[in-house]
């Protein structure tokens, strides 16, 4: 069969669809209003909440760091916490702004690239958040306590305890990564857990970079075949 004949087959299918399609105006309006609100709200709300929490964390961490700027322990621990918080907050702000501005009416290759770049940042943010959460939760707790009570909690904790906590966090992450690689193909996982597993196992990043490569190949000018 020639391609033009396939076109005829496709056109006949289209004509059949055209005849059978019904548009219910009332239901369409209801659906549009409901679904637009529904689709946008959770993602944007989570990103906005993350940005707000990041800013709140910085408001807590920076004064403590400034008050103990000459003490190496504070510079290293609270400094790492501040850098981590700035990084994560910036990534969340990037996601918030870009997801709200994504315009699906752009050229397919351009929009698909934008979508994949957003996903890339999302996976990176999640991965860094897991890394930071596992290793910096104790310093975060101590610095928050210090900011609230003005008791220099971070200075009073033994260094060995802080190092032990850091090692524990790294071991926990390594175990989490091994577990996520083992269970990455499981289908009975809730969507939120799926995101964590994909981020930890590296599968999410591989999928995104694979699609970006595919896009680049697609855009590449093919040489006519001999």
């Amino acid at each position: 069969m020639k391609f033009d004949e396939l076109k005829n087959v496709w056109a006949a299918h289209g004509a059949l669809l055209e005849r059978s399609i019904a548009v219910d105006e009332r239901l369409l309006r209801e659906m549009l209003l409901r679904k637009v609100r529904f689709a946008l709200a959770p993602y944007a709300a989570w990103r906005a909440l993350e940005v707000a929490l990041g800013i709140a964390a910085l408001i807590v961490v920076v004064p403590v760091l400034a008050a103990h700027g000459a003490e190496p322990r504070y510079v290293v621990v609270a400094g790492a916490l501040a850098v981590f918080t700035i990084g994560i907050t910036a990534l969340c702000a990037y996601l918030l702004v870009n997801c709200l501005q994504l315009d699906y009416s752009g050229r397919v290759t351009a929009i698909q690239r934008d979508v994949e770049r957003i996903k890339l940042v999302e996976y990176r943010a999640l991965k860094w958040a897991l890394l930071g959460g596992a290793t910096l939760w104790l310093p975060a707790l101590l610095v928050s306590f210090e900011a609230l009570t003005e008791v220099d909690a971070l200075a009073r904790v033994q260094l060995s305890y802080l190092i032990g906590n850091l090692i524990f966090g790294l071991v926990l992450l390594a175990l989490g990564q091994a577990w996520s690689k083992k269970h990455v193909e499981r289908s009975d996982i809730e969507p939120w857990a799926r995101r964590w597993i994909d981020a930890l196992s590296g599968r999410g990043l591989r999928s995104v970079t694979g699609h970006l490569d595919e896009l680049a190949r697609f855009e590449h000018e093919d040489l006519p075949q001999a």
Binding site: L16, A22, V23, S187, I189
Partner: peptide
């Protein structure tokens, strides 16, 4: 991996092809 529970009530029938429309064999 999709959570279908959330979208069940969003399946408002708005722009639907009649159930009888099944693509032909060639299609």
């Amino acid at each position: 991996h999709r959570d279908r529970h959330l979208s069940i009530d969003l399946h408002a029938i708005t722009i639907t092809a009649a159930p009888a429309v099944e693509p032909g064999e060639d299609v």
